[in-house]
Amino acid sequence: QVLVIRIKIPNSGAVDWTVHSGPQLLFRDVLDVIGQVLPEATTTAFEYEDEDGDRITVRSDEEMKAMLSYYYSTVMEQQVNGQLIEPLQIFPRAC
């Protein structure tokens, strides 16, 4: 299952990153890619938005798994409803 992660860049749009092994993705892998997209920032975590629009911070593989399972459940709903699949949007955080 292909996963598209949209890395939101403060004040300048976003970069889409296509991942072919989504469920095996590790927290460190995401930080590495964010580091390539935002080389001047030191990113130690990132956030995503849940169904209520609240930002949830991801700082570990466990939290990463929770984010992915949340995302895959929303994708299934979108597929069932015949909607366009939205990329998983993440917001890098420099701490």
Rank of each mutant, 00 (worst) to 15 (best):
L3D: 00
L26K: 14
L26C: 12
Q24T: 10
N11V: 03
S73T: 12
G35M: 09
L31K: 05
E62I: 08
Q89V: 12
F27A: 01
D29F: 04
Q83W: 06
F27D: 01
A45G: 09
T74S: 12
A41H: 15
C95D: 15
Q89W: 09
I56V: 12
K65P: 10
L3E: 02
T57I: 12
M76K: 14
R55V: 03
I9K: 14
V19Q: 04
D16E: 07
L68V: 06
E77W: 08
G82P: 09
I5F: 12
G82K: 10
E51Y: 10
R28S: 15
L31Y: 02
D16A: 01
V58I: 05
Y71S: 01
Q78M: 12
I56W: 04
G53M: 03
V33R: 15
V37N: 05
D16C: 07
N11S: 11
Y70P: 00
C95N: 15
E40F: 09
T42W: 05
E86L: 07
T74E: 07
I90H: 01
T18Q: 13
V80P: 11
R93K: 07
V2I: 08
P23Y: 10
M67T: 01
E51T: 10
S60W: 00
M76Q: 12
P39D: 10
D54R: 12
V75T: 14
M64Y: 04
K65L: 06
E86Q: 12
M76E: 15
L26P: 05
R59D: 15
D61I: 03
M64V: 14
F27E: 04
K8I: 14
A66D: 13
T44F: 07
L3S: 02
Y72G: 07
M67G: 01
Q89S: 13
T18F: 00
K65A: 07
D50F: 01
L68G: 02
S12M: 13
E63M: 02
S73L: 06
E63A: 06
L3P: 04
D50W: 05
R59V: 03
E86T: 09
Q89M: 13
A14M: 07
H20D: 11
L26Q: 14
S73Y: 05
E47N: 02
I56S: 02
D29A: 04
D54M: 14
V30H: 00
S21H: 14
L38M: 15
P23L: 07
S12H: 14
N81I: 07
I85H: 10
D54V: 13
Y48D: 02
F27T: 05
D52L: 12
D16P: 00
V58F: 00
T57F: 06
V75D: 04
A94V: 15
P10A: 06
L88D: 00
V30Y: 07
D61Q: 07
E47L: 04
S21P: 15
F91W: 12
P10D: 07
M67L: 03
Y48C: 02
R55P: 03
K65N: 09
V15N: 01
S73K: 08
I5T: 01
V75S: 10
S21Q: 11
V80N: 13
G53K: 05
Q89R: 08
